[in-house]
Design a protein around this nucleic acid. Structure first.
Length: 506
RNA sequence: GUCUUGUUAGCUCAGCUGGUAGAGCACGUCACUUUUAAUGAUGUGGCCGAUGGUUCGAAUCCAUCACAGGACACCA
């Protein structure tokens, strides 16, 4: 089982030998007084000095050994901390009697975490390095690191053992630092706009707010099932009813559906709700939000994404029906006829489910001919009411809703609308969903009577929006799999023989 | 869910039409006091993803399964 690998055994023996030498292989007595990046910055003047060294300066740095080059009575090692990589020169005659030969060369190796004291100097090859006067082992690594040149490239290992991926591919830290900044900037942006951050339940008695299959969990003491939330929407709206006028929540949603390059069972979104505003105000604040992100992340306006280049200075707005013809090249005369749309789709070898209504067919046309062409940020507005169950109808045209979706690089990034606040209309739409559920649609909503009750007390006219943070981070970091922007993406168990049998018994 | 590619040493990978397992790195030993994936010599290291089949003989061929990557479908 654990530690049976012979390389691991070898290293455990080294740890034992260290203990016999009176050296703790897991010492926590760290005296580090600078980071590697600071060391390199502060001592960048050494290069210009006559002797290329300054023995009066003294630093203590720590890090993991990534490279180990022994050259007889002296060695070069490279150590890495969170901030960067540093070369250390270790010579026998600068260390206590016997330490170099008996301890350093024999019992310290790549992967170990060490602490080095010494002074700065520049090598003959011109690299600013640290001249060691003391080497102290902080942590013995008993598993060997992957190969030093190729590192770990196997995606499966990288996702399952993210710690190893971070050790070996330290540049991916930048992706996760960007992710952290996006979340932090998002929080700051909405706070500066006067929004209140709230936390609503993640265990719901009724899974609502989206069309999705939920995870089910169980409350032992109450003896009842709960659903992990698929969206925070209905709770956030209850808060608007209660009198909060601008709220947001950044957190996880859970959907019990397939996994692929853009879907993880748990994903992070921000949803925000804004009273006395409409979806038009949301378009304005969304543009401001992107500008804020780009300014604070120092991203260029022309951002590459794969083979594409996205111009974040070019936000446009277009109603869905109009986009079908101007962007999708669909003949204008067919977009308002079910029969004509079906005929057109069939002529393009696209088959659709029978009995789709006009709005759904328009949605099909959009997915097929428009979505992929929306590279620069585009707000698609005026969605058909049939495919917008939670949005408020337009006062001018009852067939369309006050809604937009934002598309960037051919993908949906945000979904927003003026919220439905007519409790009777909402009740009837829920009822329609309940009928659909009874008819076998297991993603249809359930009746949420408490939410209807809340609306019945009156919700101020409100606009609400959701932005998928994972997909946003993918866009900003030029990553094409959601697994590359999640530290620990969901993976299937490797050895699931036992689990499978357990499941079969259930 | 469908199709497709992969799974061989700790890591990165070879292994042809079936004949009993290879390299580099890492690790051990030796040499080497300014290297840059250090170098040179030498050695250890494997249930060839799992199960079954074909065969005198399977890492190799066939089937099933597991996991992963990619594409498509479904889903927001």
């Amino acid at each position: 089982m654990a530690f049976e690998n012979k390389f691991v055994q070898q290293r455990i023996e080294k740890a034992e030998l260290l203990k016999k030498e009176g050296i703790n292989p897991y010492s926590n007595d760290s005296k580090r007084n600078t980071t590697i990046i600071k060391y390199l910055n502060v001592n960048s003047d050494i290069e210009s000095k006559e002797e290329k060294r300054d023995e009066h300066r003294h630093y203590i740095v720590s890090g993991r050994i990534k490279l180990f080059r022994i050259m007889g009575k002296a060695s070069f090692i490279k150590i890495e901390d969170e901030s960067g990589m540093l070369q250390v020169y270790v010579a026998r005659d600068n260390l206590p009697e016997g330490f170099y030969n008996d301890v350093f060369k024999k019992l310290v190796e790549v992967g170990d975490i060490v602490e080095i004291s010494g002074y700065p100097f520049v090598t003959g090859q011109g690299e600013l390095s640290l001249h060691a006067s003391e080497v102290k082992l902080l942590t013995k690594a008993i598993s060997p690191l992957p190969e030093k040149f190729h590192g770990v490239t196997d995606k499966e290992i990288r996702y399952r053992k993210r710690y190893l991926d971070l050790i070996m591919n330290s540049d991916i830290r930048r992706t996760f630092q960007t992710r952290s900044k996006v979340i932090s900037l998002t929080r700051r942006f909405f706070e500066e706009k006067g929004f209140l951050e709230v936390e609503t339940p993640m265990m719901h008695p009724i899974a609502g707010g989206a069309n999705a299959r939920p995870f089910i969990t169980h409350h032992n003491a109450l003896g009842i099932d709960r659903f992990l939330r698929i969206a925070p929407e209905l709770y956030l709206k209850r808060l608007i009813v209660g009198g909060f006028e601008a709220v947001f929540e950044i957190n996880r949603n859970f959907r019990n559906e397939g996994m692929d390059a853009t879907h993880n069972p748990e994903f992070t979104s921000i949803e925000f709700y804004w009273a006395y505003k409409t979806y038009k105000d949301l378009i304005v604040i969304t543009k401001e939000y992107f500008k804020y992100l780009f300014d604070h992340l120092n991203l260029p306006t022309l951002l590459p994404y794969g083979d594409l280049e996205v111009n974040f200075g070019n936000f446009t707005e277009i109603p869905l029906i109009e986009s079908l013809t101007t962007i999708g090249g669909v003949p204008a005369e067919i977009t308002n006829s079910k029969e004509e749309i079906v005929k057109f789709l069939n002529s393009k070898n696209i088959t659709v489910k029978p009995d789709l209504n006009l709005g759904q067919l328009q949605g099909e046309l959009f997915d097929e001919f428009v979505e992929g062409k929306l590279i620069d940020p585009t707000f698609i507005t005026e969605y058909p009411v049939e495919i917008s169950p939670l949005a408020r109808r337009s006062d001018e045209n009852p067939d369309i809703t006050e809604r937009f979706e934002l598309f960037i690089a051919g993908r949906e990034i945000a979904n927003a609308f003026s919220e439905l606040n007519d409790p009777v209309d909402q009740y009837n739409r829920f009822k329609g969903q309940v009928d659909a559920k009874d008819a076998g649609d297991d993603e249809a909503h359930e009746m949420d009577e408490d939410f209807i009750d809340a609306l019945s007390y009156g919700m101020a006219p409100t606009a609400g929006q959701g932005i998928g943070i994972d997909r946003l981070v993918m866009l900003l970091t030029n990553e094409h799999s959601i697994r590359d922007v999640l530290l620990f993406p969901a993976m299937k168990p490797i050895h699931n023989d036992e689990q499978t049998t357990q499941n079969e018994e259930l």
